[in-house]
């Protein structure tokens, strides 16, 4: 739900402020790739209505966000591709594909794609965090959006702890990816929490 909330928060921000200054479209592109790699089973496997519905929502909303930021005025007029410049193609996609192949539980396309999507998701926030570091001042809604993006994976970790003790569920790849992903947020969370605590605007060093 936190992940869904982060997407809805971003949609609301774009619609309300008609600006995507401070928002990384490259991060959304990474998430679109994550979802396409991971949700291929939409075509051949049914787990539950909830599972299918959320997959469709995540894929469609992420592509809609990219469309808004890249091609739909007035939002796209505020998008600066030179500022949002993290070269994720070689820095993130390459390693995720290699790691996905090496660490896949079995060498089948769905499993390799699933594993690569876990590694890619764990670092997909980097373009967004790097863009914020360049801008330093973080607008309120953006701060909330990034905070929910960091929080959702932390709640997966809590669920994984529960599932490990309740049903012996083991998911090494997901666990490692989740720890890396949450770890990348820790310093942002610190500055976010401080700005909330002291009621000041969020400014990154």
């Amino acid at each position: 739900m936190l992940h869904l909330m982060s997407i809805l928060l971003l949609l609301w921000k774009l619609k309300k402020s008609k600006s995507c200054v401070g928002i990384s479209c490259r991060m959304q592109e990474c998430y679109a790739i994550v979802f396409c790699l991971r949700y291929l089973d939409l075509f051949y496997q049914f787990i539950s209505v909830y599972n299918t519905a959320m997959k469709v929502v995540f894929i469609s909303s992420t592509f809609y966000l990219i469309f808004l930021m890249r091609f739909q005025p007035p939002v796209s007029a505020t998008y600066d591709r030179t500022a949002d410049s993290f070269p994720y193609e070689q820095y993130l996609l390459g390693p995720a594909a290699v790691l996905g192949f090496i660490s896949a539980e079995e060498w089948s396309i769905p499993e390799i794609f699933w594993t690569a999507s876990i590694w890619l998701e764990s670092v997909s926030i980097l373009p967004q965090l790097i863009l914020l570091q360049q801008l330093r001042e973080v607008e309120n809604l953006t701060a909330e959006f990034v905070a929910t993006m960091g929080a959702y994976r932390f709640f997966y970790i809590l669920n994984w702890i529960y599932r490990y003790f309740a049903e012996g569920y083991v998911n090494w790849i997901g666990w490692l990816g989740g720890i890396v992903q949450t770890g990348l947020y820790v310093d942002f969370f610190y500055y976010y929490a401080m700005s909330k605590w002291y009621g000041q605007k969020l400014v990154l060093p």
Binding site: N51, F58, S108, E111
Partner: peptide, 10 residues
């Protein structure tokens, strides 16, 4: 886990 890894999470 049975056969191919069953991924029931989003």
């Amino acid at each position: 886990d049975e056969g191919g890894a069953e991924h029931d999470e989003l």
